[in-house]
Write a protein that binds this DNA or RNA. Structure first.
Length: 804
DNA sequence: AACGGACGGGG
DNA sequence: GTGTACGTCCGTT
């Protein structure tokens, strides 16, 4: 409905220009711009970096012309926006824009400081005089200068470049301590994507020379991107501090300037976190810690964001990777410097690997969105990405811009649990890109989008993503090219999924709560259609969430198991019953499932799925936080998983046998003590603990073992012996079996409460056969249906609405 | 034991 | 621009 609302004379941008901007200049690796219409551009051409000076009009949107009163304003024709606009030096140009949105004017000038200041002053005066009532944010809309340059020229970073074309340099410090006030740097490892590798340390030079050498190497290697894990909050801070103390200059920018510093925010999940951003002219600085945390905010199974943990999680930690505990590094360096050198270099290697995995999509986004790469890597999706894209379209099209006016809340996605307990023949079905599909199919976009750019962009992204996705799978393409297509498709996925969010976010320029609610309402209807279609096929619904459903196919009279192909047929059949543009996808199949709580369940794979060459994984998967607790002993955690597995195999005698075997193994001291230990850190030093005068279990256990000294932060392992807790010792067998049997029963009773009745639990978890017990072979698992299991998530203003 | 508060990362 | 995640561990009572 919003497409082509303009008059016939209105220039409309083709979709490619909307998405990539109108200027295809390749190889831009960094941009510096100022408020006087000057830009410096660094481009990588045939592997060499060239520096170019450029001119552009700074610009901002303005709601009221009178804010420029008294300034020598020149009216410019709107046709100036048809190509790349150029103005005479010193001009304060004003373009009256098309359409009816509040920001009616575009100011083009190379005197931005002066003009913006004057307009802000005028706004403040008019506000005081009561002539206007709007806040200044409704009167003047200014983007950062680099974005101004990229937007008005239609350029972006990294056109025609792949990740491998950019020169990335990683460096990592080893220091005598964490605080830059007292610590010193004694080692630096450096690596770059052109094959440079070095580790330098204070065995062969002074700390000052180490810093000079670091600076010399960075200048000589001339990287486009500098990266490390926690580079902003540690390495750069430390380097600057030590360089200051030792009077070493750090002219690391491409123009010989040093680091600049500003407060900025990094979007992590739904939150904004403030940090000190350091910048270098002509280079981009990227923090893999930010990237890791952004990842783990979505993918919750990455527990720790530390470099080593993240590298192991992603499978990029080398077999022979050297580890040195942080607190020991300086000490180990005295005894075995070679070991610390290996450790330090392994760090930069892992950073490089994480960068490949986590930053390639941000890199790909930088060839689309008019924004510096280092900013894209920390930006949110709505205001951070979608808005710059739409604003570029509005500037190029000469359209007036809306202001953000979102308020209130609306209903979001629907979640429901229909069945708890044990179910078989489980299939997971997802509606592909539910919200984007609805927006495209029903032509739902912001009412204020008079240019119709919103849906055009969404449509183009959806088309192109499919192409990139299929190209990423083409075996006839070289790996690097496939990686490029994969990064592109995931960048586009990020954008596609952000459109709905930017409708629902109050502070987004193109916020439209009514439109957002139409999307979610339609989403609930479509999910209901899917549920209805499934029920019509006599499946048992288990759990539904916004755009996906877990269900159980009925056993067939002849007992034949369902095949994947048959399940696909069911799903394709359902897709045919869905509205146009809505596709249901097969997203997983499981032999059995224990549905415990909403989003907490155990899945048992089909045997063949485990063999089929996918990632090797346990045949049973426990999903959801309620199954995991760090404080559970290994034996109990394993016993629970095994019991669920047996229950899902319908093997109740097996559960009882397993229980009895475990009890007797405990009583006969056959369980290795390691499996019964809990681990606790001694965070306080001996002095601090003594001073605290308050007994804590781990310390008392450690002291009772005859120790009096420990290093703060060291971790101990201990178990319950008869009468007292004791430190682990190899082969110890004086643990208290009754204690562990009780713990095991208590844990299982709770976690299995929806799988077996209380009565059956007592039968299963009993060491002797009771006279009146149900025969164990006759025990059936629980399965409970929950009617009215309807639940609609409220989408509040701002938070939460961002995610789709 | 129960609760409020700090932290997550880097050496 | 503002409110605010979430799970774990610490410190206090």
């Amino acid at each position: 409905m919003n497409v082509s609302m303009g008059s016939a004379s209105t220039p409309s941008l083709d979709r490619r220009t909307l998405l990539f901007g109108r200027d295809d200049t390749p190889g831009i690796v960094s941009v510096a711009a100022d408020r006087r219409g000057r830009a410096r551009v660094w481009r990588r051409v045939d592997g060499q970096v060239v520096h170019e000076e450029d001119q552009f009009p700074n610009w901002f949107f303005l709601a009221r012309r009178e804010l420029l009163e008294g300034l020598p304003v020149v009216d410019l024709p709107i046709s100036i926006l048809d190509g790349r606009p150029r103005i005479e030096p010193g001009t304060i140009g004003l373009v009256k824009l098309r359409g009816t949105n509040p920001f009616q004017y575009l100011v083009l000038t190379d005197r931005l400081e002066e003009v913006e200041h004057a307009a802000a002053e005028a706004a403040a005066r008019l506000l005081v005089d009561g002539v206007i009532t709007q806040p200044i944010s409704d009167l003047i809309y200014v983007r950062p200068v680099v974005e101004q340059y990229l937007t008005i020229t239609g350029r972006t970073y990294y056109k025609d470049m792949t990740y491998a074309d950019v020169r990335r340099l990683q460096f990592d410090l080893e220091t005598t301590g964490l605080g830059a006030e007292y610590g010193r740097i004694f080692m630096v490892s450096i690596k770059d994507s052109a094959g440079f590798e070095i580790v330098i340390d204070t065995q062969s030079m002074t700390e000052a020379d180490l810093l000079r050498e670091l600076a010399r190497i960075i200048r000589e290697r001339d990287p486009d991107v500098i990266e490390n894990h926690n580079i902003f909050d540690f390495d750069i801070k430390f380097v600057i501090k030590r360089a200051q103390v030792l009077d070493v200059p750090l002219p690391l920018g491409r123009d010989g300037s040093t680091f600049s510093e500003m407060r900025d925010n990094v979007k992590i999940g739904a939150n904004n976190e403030s940090f000190t951003r350091y910048s270098l002219t002509g280079r981009e600085i990227l923090d893999t810690l930010h990237a890791t945390r952004r990842f783990s905010a979505i993918q919750r199974d990455l527990r720790s964001n530390g470099l080593k943990d993240a590298a192991r999680y992603f499978g990029v930690a080398a077999e022979d990777r050297e580890y040195v505990p942080g607190a020991d590094i300086w000490k180990v360096f005295q005894e075995d410097p070679e070991r610390v050198r290996r450790y330090c270099f392994d760090d930069v290697e892992e950073v490089d690997s994480l960068s490949h995995l986590l930053l390639a999509p941000a890199f790909a986004l930088a060839s689309i969105v008019p924004k510096a790469y280092e900013r894209i890597a920390t930006a949110g999706t709505g205001q951070g990405l979608i808005e710059p894209l739409l604003v570029r379209a509005y500037v190029a099209g000469g359209y007036s811009l809306p202001v953000a006016r979102g308020t209130g809340s609306y209903s979001g996605g629907r979640t429901a649990v229909f069945t708890t307990g044990v179910v078989h023949n489980v299939v997971k079905a997802d509606i592909a890109s539910l919200y984007p599909s609805i927006m495209l199919a029903e032509r739902i976009g912001p009412e204020t989008d008079e240019m119709g750019a919103f849906l055009e962009l969404l449509a183009e992204l959806t088309n192109l993503r499919l192409q990139h996705k299929s190209d990423a799978r083409r075996q006839d393409l070289p790996a690097e090219e496939r990686a490029y297509h994969d990064a592109m498709q995931s960048a586009m996925k990020v954008l596609i999924n952000s459109f709905y969010g930017s409708l629902g976010a109050n502070f987004a320029l193109f916020c439209d709560k009514t439109a957002a609610e139409r999307v979610t309402t339609r989403g609930r209807e479509i999910l209901q259609l899917l549920l209805d279609e499934l029920e019509r096929r006599n499946v048992v619904l288990i759990e539904a969430d916004t755009d996906g459903v877990l269900f159980s196919l009925p056993d067939r009279p002849d007992g034949r198991p369902w095949t994947y192909e048959e399940e696909l047929e069911v799903i394709e059949d359902i897709t045919r019953a869905m509205p146009t543009g809505i596709h249901v996808e097969h997203d997983g199949r499981y032999r059995a499932m224990y549905s415990y709580l909403e989003k907490n369940y155990a899945l048992l794979d089909y045997d063949e799925a485990a063999k089929a060459g996918f990632r090797p994984r346990d045949p049973i998967r426990l999903v959801g936080s309620s199954f995991k607790s760090a404080k559970t002993e290994e034996l109990i955690q394993r016993f629970l998983a095994d019991s669920i597995k047996l229950i899902l195999h319908d093997d109740f005698p097996g559960v009882r046998d397993h229980y009895r075997a475990t009890c007797s193994a405990l009583r006969n001291r056959e369980v290795p003590v390691e499996q019964l230990c809990v681990s606790m850190p001694l965070t306080k030093s001996p002095e601090k603990y003594a001073a605290a005068k308050r007994k804590e279990e781990p310390y008392e256990v450690y002291l009772a073992a005859g120790n009096s000294k420990w290093k703060a932060g060291s971790r101990i392992y201990y178990y319950q012996a008869k009468g007292a807790k004791k430190l682990i010792s190899a082969g110890a067998s004086d643990y208290d079996p009754e204690h562990y049997i009780n713990r095991l029963r208590a844990t299982c009773k709770q976690r299995l409460e929806r799988a077996v009745s209380g009565e059956d639990f007592e039968t299963l978890f009993s060491e002797s056969d009771g006279l009146f017990d149900t025969p164990v072979g006759a025990i059936r698992p629980l399965r409970e249906t929950h009617r009215n299991a309807m639940d609609v998530e409220e989408k509040d203003e701002g938070a939460g609405a961002e995610e789709s």
